[in-house]
């Protein structure tokens, strides 16, 4: 492997997606996706449910062949060279892929055997990886006796066991309490620092999105935005005014008529995005006396970015 020493930008791309398209029968799940991911990057994939995230994840993990277009990982095509790609990637699925009847160590041994590792080298690797996620003491426990957070950590250690160049994480922090989520991120950053690991993560959580180097927002199978969290926030610009009121729908209509502002209702509150937000607040109170219960002004968050580009909240609580 000399790829890492080639200085050209192309070779540094761990993942290249080019004109990727997939349809399930008549339904187009993703269309003409093209993007590149650099080595060592933490790359976030954001999108509403059914937006094509899962389809892309399955294509990249070699479980699904795209209808058209190409995707290559570490220079290997996901369709033509699936075995090469599989050696390059570690996959952590949304639901932990552990055998609950087996112990942590047994799960790791099987994983190692599937990836061509064995013997003393495998044992040492297992100890190291379990140590990194602080699960070494529980190595001989059956997985069914572990908490959700512990299973997630073991699953991550399992996905990283063969030292993949790229790890694909599908909603890895779902169902974790904030402490466990923080831990998981520290293990991921640690692996990136130590091994130069590249990380592709799908998520619907702001905290996860904030930690990514770059974010790709997909909706209805198309890329709607791609950039660093800061750049995306700047692209939205202005201030965001959120006002609580008894009838937000009626107020939104009134604000649109009166001020010509782009007012919407999100989460039962009126939301207006415009330049010089603080100046707008007194105007709002003057125009609708007694109707506004509370108001806040802030810079756009990633949530606002997401709403701006997709018209949805990132997480609508269902599904």
């Amino acid at each position: 492997m000399t790829v890492a020493s080639v200085p050209s930008g192309e070779a540094d791309d761990i993942l290249v997606v080019d004109g990727l398209r997939h349809s399930y029968g008549e339904t187009l799940a993703i269309q003409d996706l093209s993007f590149r991911m650099q080595r060592g990057e933490i790359f976030g994939l954001l999108g509403p449910n059914g937006g094509g995230k899962t389809t892309l994840f399955r294509i990249l993990s070699t479980l699904l062949a795209p209808t058209a277009g190409r995707a290559s990982i570490g220079g290997h095509d996901v369709v033509r060279e699936p075995q090469e790609v599989r050696r390059q990637i570690g996959v952590v699925f949304q639901a932990p892929s552990l055998d609950v009847k087996l112990t942590v160590r047994e799960n790791m041994v099987h994983q190692g055997h599937l990836y061509g590792l064995h013997g003393a080298a495998l044992d040492a690797r297992i100890d190291e990886m379990l140590g990194r996620v602080a699960m070494r003491e529980r190595a001989d426990a059956r997985v069914e006796t572990l908490s959700g957070g512990m299973r997630r950590r073991v699953d991550l250690a399992k996905g990283l066991l063969h030292r993949p160049a790229l790890v694909l994480l599908d909603e890895p922090t779902t169902g974790l309490d904030p402490g466990a989520r923080l831990d998981l991120w520290s293990y991921v950053s640690d692996a990136r620092k130590r091994d130069g690991l590249s990380v592709l993560i799908t998520t619907h959580l702001m905290e996860d999105a904030e930690r990514c180097d770059r974010l790709l927002i997909v909706e209805r199978g198309r890329i709607v935005a791609l950039g660093t969290p800061d750049a995306l926030r700047e692209s939205v610009g202005g201030d965001v005014i959120v006002a609580r009121t008894r009838d937000p729908e009626a107020l939104a209509v009134a604000v649109r008529e009166r001020f010509g502002e782009d007012a919407s209702v999100v989460d039962g509150a009126l939301r207006v995005r415009r330049a010089r937000g603080p100046e707008f607040v007194p105007q709002l109170f003057d125009a609708f006396p007694g109707q506004i219960e509370a108001v806040s002004v802030g810079k756009p968050t990633l949530e606002d970015v997401f709403i701006q580009y997709t018209g949805h909240r990132l997480w609508d609580g269902e599904a």
């Binding site: 990637i89 996959v91 699925f93 932990p96």
Partner: peptide, 9 residues
């Protein structure tokens, strides 16, 4: 349980 997916990749 998801075990099969891990084997398939």
């Amino acid at each position: 349980e998801g075990f099969l997916q891990a084997v398939l990749v």
